[in-house]
């Protein structure tokens, strides 16, 4: 029933939809027994995805139109001949753990397109606007598609994890989004690579929205905002602005040049570090010498390996260290 990692990896590189689906099922598998196979798969595609393609994060407050915009963007990328993988993350209900992956609702139109693959992921209670499987799912899609779009849940102020897993962060806001700017200025929300004012349904609205943001940003330039940040206006319902958006994304990808591989490596390190921290807390991090030391260890271990294996190895290290530390104490009655 479950194909071998080698078969899946080969299928991914041949852009076989069935292999993509199975590989995504695998990386979502939380059973300890699956971890080896996930790691093997990730290792097999590691070189292929190191510098290939483009991963774009679409993030922003609830209801600004991320899903509609992602769908419209996917269509305009398809028109440019690019193959698109899309990961849509939806929140899960805390009580039941279940979720309604309703965002797909606004994506389908017309007959299925073999050059577009959409997978919804539930957060499963994972904070940060993503799902635990998202980083691996992105790598799977990157092996088979030219552009991978990642739609986060409607993020609040503190959820900035997306930066670690994508090459380009597009922050979507609505016209007249004073609050978002406040968050940006206050440094609560991470600085995006691209600011998209969606719901700019007609020319006048688009022009006003962009100039409003520009002037607000001008006053914030001293904190590094404004200068290089491009601002675009779109209307996901009428399709306005998507050619420009696609071009701006491509331009950002090109501007990354050689730094792309480094950025992705750093993202992978951050992913592994977050995994380790989620498992063992800040105490675990401290035990291994603090955050910087942890990241250095991860960076050393990653080439030739994969995140799940590295995290497992570090876990073992930590647990051994811990048991050495508490073993003598166990004999002293408390």
């Amino acid at each position: 029933m479950s194909a071998a990692p080698e078969t899946l990896a080969a299928g991914l590189l041949q852009r076989d939809r069935r292999a993509v689906a199975q590989a995504l099922n695998l990386v979502e598998d939380a059973r300890p027994a699956a971890r080896g196979r996930i790691a093997a798969l990730l290792r097999l595609v590691r070189d292929d995805v190191a510098e290939a393609g483009h991963v774009v994060g679409v993030t922003g407050p609830p209801g600004v139109g991320k899903s509609t915009l992602s769908a419209a963007l996917a269509r305009s990328l398809r028109r440019r001949g690019q193959r698109v993988g899309l990961v849509a993350v939806d929140p899960s209900s805390l009580a039941s753990g279940g979720s309604l992956l309703g965002d797909r609702a606004r994506m389908g139109d017309g007959e299925p397109d073999p050059g577009l693959f959409i997978r919804s992921l539930a957060t499963g209670g994972h904070a940060g606007g993503l799902s635990h499987a998202a980083p691996a799912a992105i790598r799977v899609l990157l092996a088979a598609y030219d552009v991978v779009l990642v739609e986060t849940t409607g993020v609040g102020q503190t959820e900035t994890e997306v930066r670690d897993v994508v090459d380009t962060v597009a922050l979507v806001v609505q016209p007249g989004s004073g609050d978002t700017l406040q968050f940006l200025k206050a440094g609560v929300m991470e600085i995006p690579d691209l600011l998209v004012v969606n719901k700019a349904d007609h020319e006048a609205l688009a022009t006003r929205a962009v100039s409003d943001l520009r002037s607000a940003l001008a006053t914030a330039e001293r904190i590094g905002l404004g200068g290089g940040l491009s601002i675009l206006a779109t209307s996901a319902t009428t399709g306005r602005g998507f050619e420009d958006l696609a071009a701006a994304l491509a331009a950002h990808r090109a501007s990354l040049g050689d730094s792309l591989a480094a950025r992705r490596r750093a993202g992978e390190v951050a992913w592994a570090a977050a995994r380790f921290t989620a498992r063992h807390g800040s105490h675990g991090v401290a035990r291994l010498g603090g955050d910087d030391a942890l990241r250095a260890r991860i960076a050393d271990a990653l080439p030739g390996s994969a995140v799940p294996l590295v995290v497992d190895a570090l876990s073992t290290l930590f647990l051994e260290d811990l048991s050495r530390a508490i073993a003598p104490k166990a004999e002293t009655p408390s």
């Binding site: 689906a21 899960s92 979720s99 007959e111 997978r119």
Partner: peptide
């Protein structure tokens, strides 16, 4: 959802091919 499934629902009026495609993509 309330008993804990992850549920994919895309609304009305889909073709058989669209449903099959979603089933595959969503695993």
């Amino acid at each position: 959802r309330d008993v804990g499934f992850d549920v994919v629902y895309e609304g009305i009026r889909l073709t058989p091919a669209q449903i099959a495609s979603s089933a595959l993509e969503e695993g």
